[in-house]
Design a protein around this nucleic acid. Sequence first.
DNA 1: CTTGAAATTAGATGAATGTCTAATTAGACG
DNA 2: CGTCTAATTAGACATTCATCTAATTTCAAG
Lengths: 193, 193
Amino acid sequence: MTETLLAFFKALAHESRLRIVGLLAQKEHSVQELAALLDLKEPTVSHHLAILKEQRLVTVRAEGTTRWHALDIAALETLSRRVLETQQPSAALLAVDEDEARVLGAFVDADERLREIPVNRGKRVIVLRWLMQMFEEDRRYSEAEINAYLKSRYPPDWARLRRELVDHRMMERDAGVYWRLPRDRWRDERLEA
Amino acid sequence: MTETLLAFFKALAHESRLRIVGLLAQKEHSVQELAALLDLKEPTVSHHLAILKEQRLVTVRAEGTTRWHALDIAALETLSRRVLETQQPSAALLAVDEDEARVLGAFVDADERLREIPVNRGKRVIVLRWLMQMFEEDRRYSEAEINAYLKSRYPPDWARLRRELVDHRMMERDAGVYWRLPRDRWRDERLEA
DNA sequence: CTTGAAATTAGATGAATGTCTAATTAGACG
DNA sequence: CGTCTAATTAGACATTCATCTAATTTCAAG
């Protein structure tokens, strides 16, 4: 999701493109018209339109050799609405089933901090899975990065959390670099398993 | 409006800043924590935070030499809602009549910040109505959310603004939760009333 | 007042990207 | 097919901006 949001913001984070959107919001325009209105050369306008089209913010209709560009207001609304969904649900709300909700409710406080590390192995796995939600696959993390995150979740013994994540094959490590393993390779015995 | 919108998009059109917003949406963080989580140096993080603060997307709370940064969700919502409007957001332009335009022009600066709280009750009501535009009906707001928003509009005495909103029956409060009251129940005596 | 920790500011460097000219493609029409 | 027009693509150049190191500021604690 960060992916698409980032692309969306990048698409609109330039004066020329924002002005193009403003002009197309009023009526459709050809490349020539836009170039004249914006005081830019046609290739430049084409370039900006290509970026807006990637985000599906602009649609095209051909008429002879002329191409009429229009704003896709629905797409604009969909994307900007997504910005509003940024609020992160608290731990328990993210849970996928009742066991998880119960365990996370018991061990994670409202500040998203871990109260203690569960002694029971099944419960501990649930907490570990919860910790893993912040890491993406196909991305490398430095040890400092991992430490900072775990420290923010459980200052008393974040080092143990790191060890547990590796033990359960959720993270793998090599030469100070960590990465997330695919979920189906986790040793994720559930409650009472 | 292109001005403020462009600055808003530029602020979020960078991966590091978008990730910072994501992290701050979960909980507040210090510069050090963010630097570790993002695998960046502290000055770099400071730089990004400064840009986000310019857009009032991030608020700061000092504790010793540590500065805890939090996301101002209200500001994020206000700005992204503005994307949907093809409207002019400047305070005076939003006014419904001349009296309002005159008062808002006098008490609200170009940055949408309140210069001072009007002593005259009628003028104060106009300013309060203007503040209310960001709040939706049928939605609950935490006290922290209200505070962050009012603080962004008038740091010197945002607490008084909150009190006034309640006094004028624009907002109601119960157990730390606030919500907007329907406009027809507001005590909105106009100028010289 | 000195020391230490956290953060910011200043300034340098390099990467990302906007804009241009020149060359190329695609469609309309005799 | 040859020509005209609108648009796109390719590649060069310039500007903006992200990131770093080094120096400075701010605040707390001895």
